[in-house]
Amino acid sequence: MPLLDIKNLTLEIDTALGWVKALDKINLSIDSKEVRALVGESGSGKSLIVKSIVGALPDRWRVTADRMNWKGRDLLSMSDTQRRNITRNEMSVVLQNPTTTLDPSATLGEQIGESIPDSMLDKGWFWQRRAQRHTIAMQQLHKVGIRNHELCLSSYPHQLPDDVCQKFAIAMALVSDPKLLIADNPTMGMETTTKIQVLRLLAKLNKTRGLSILFVSHDLLAISAMADTMTVLYCGQTVESGRMSQIKRRPLHPYTQALLDSAPSFRRDLPPKAALSCLEGTIPTLQHLPIGCRLGPRCPRAQKDCVKMPAVRRIHDHHYACHFPLHRDKP
């Protein structure tokens, strides 16, 4: 049974022009001990998926799903308290942009202390708990590579550099020893060395403790090394999902192909000043979404049929949503 199973997740936003579907029938599932990459360009709704999983969306927005299960229990229909218990003990999230997601008026020590569940403290008197929390926080900071823990714990977010805040956010997510880590662009703004350190830590936790990771990023190079499976997102629609190796070897959706091609390549036989391959145009805004397959206007293989939403098709465990996938002959 998958750990997290989402089927046809739709998120509607109330704009001046009426309700707009920011996420349209998203499918996503994460097995235990799996590292799944969620890839898409900026504005494709990656962060919205993350926020709707943990329920950090404004009340005015409508979230509907055929299925949104955590270990077989429906997240959408359960009470707030139950859902909070799950997000507190079993799921952790690193949201994008740590400078705005950390409380500006509390020290980092207070904030990480909140994330440590009481069950992790051994039975002691209440005045000993503070020291215990401090020790746990300290160890966790060392793990993500923050050496000067005293300074970090006693500082306010605005007093520290962004990459330290980012590492701190990862530490805060990992401190409650979760089953699933949802990391929204966790290596943003880091130097390459620290980035590798963090990725290595996540990979190690995945191997040793069986931590499942939903890794949201547009850094294909970083992802391809550690992810087992990948879901590609375009403009609020899932276009393709399947095993990482399979997708990389033979993408079926034109968008995935374009995404893989756009990653800078370091081949030896690359001619000098070769053009970087990319799709024409930009991702449409929420107010001007095309009907049917949203890639339509930019797609090199688009035809008349693409104004209808393609059904999800499947080859083994490789899912794609396209009328004219790459493995069929050129139409």
């Binding site: 218990n85 999230v93 950390l102």
Partner: peptide, 25 residues
């Protein structure tokens, strides 16, 4: 703001979020 959403995502209750993070800010 984002940090209130993050506090909800941490699994704090409404009261905890409001008193610890909302009020002061």
């Amino acid at each position: 703001s984002d940090y209130i959403k993050a506090a909800y995502a941490k699994g704090l209750s409404h009261a905890q979020v409001f008193w610890r993070h909302g009020m002061k800010n």
